[in-house]
């Protein structure tokens, strides 16, 4: 995974296609678990990148909806943003796309802990 963009409660992280990540041997589609891991990573990074949040975070919950199978061979990019941050909890939305950026592969919503704020 590679961080493409980071700042102001927003993170973009990409995950190149790899045969090791295949979940469905017939279609060669990447395993949902790998997409979950990407979403969680992007969500956590977005929280840490938020000006009100501390240096560390932990996932409280994460819900992922799979809209369609990712196209085999294409890099999956997840964009996560904190849409609300309190003193203790950050609420995050994330979207994952492959090369076709108009139709998301998956969307996620999650709650993350906020470490003692810097503000």
């Amino acid at each position: 995974m590679k961080v493409e963009q980071l700042g102001e409660g927003r993170a973009v992280i990409s995950m190149p296609y790899d045969t090791l990540l295949i979940g469905d041997p017939v279609t060669k589609v990447i395993h949902g678990g790998a997409v979950s891991a990407l979403m969680d990573t992007a969500g956590g990074a977005a929280v840490v990148a938020h000006p009100l949040a501390g240096l560390g975070t932990a996932t409280l919950d994460l819900r992922i909806d799979y809209m369609r199978p990712a196209t085999p061979g294409q890099t999956i990019t997840a964009t996560a943003e904190c849409y609300h941050v309190t003193r203790t909890v950050a609420f995050v939305r994330a979207t994952a796309c492959d090369a076709d950026t108009d139709r998301p592969v998956a969307t996620a919503t999650g709650a993350f802990t906020v470490a003692k704020g810097r503000a």
Binding site: L60, D61, L62, R63, P69
Partner: peptide
């Protein structure tokens, strides 16, 4: 050959402790 596997529609994880 291969056995077709179920496909995830949605999945919600609760993290209870580290």
């Amino acid at each position: 050959g291969v056995l077709a596997l179920p496909k995830t529609i949605d999945f919600t994880v609760d993290y209870l402790r580290p």
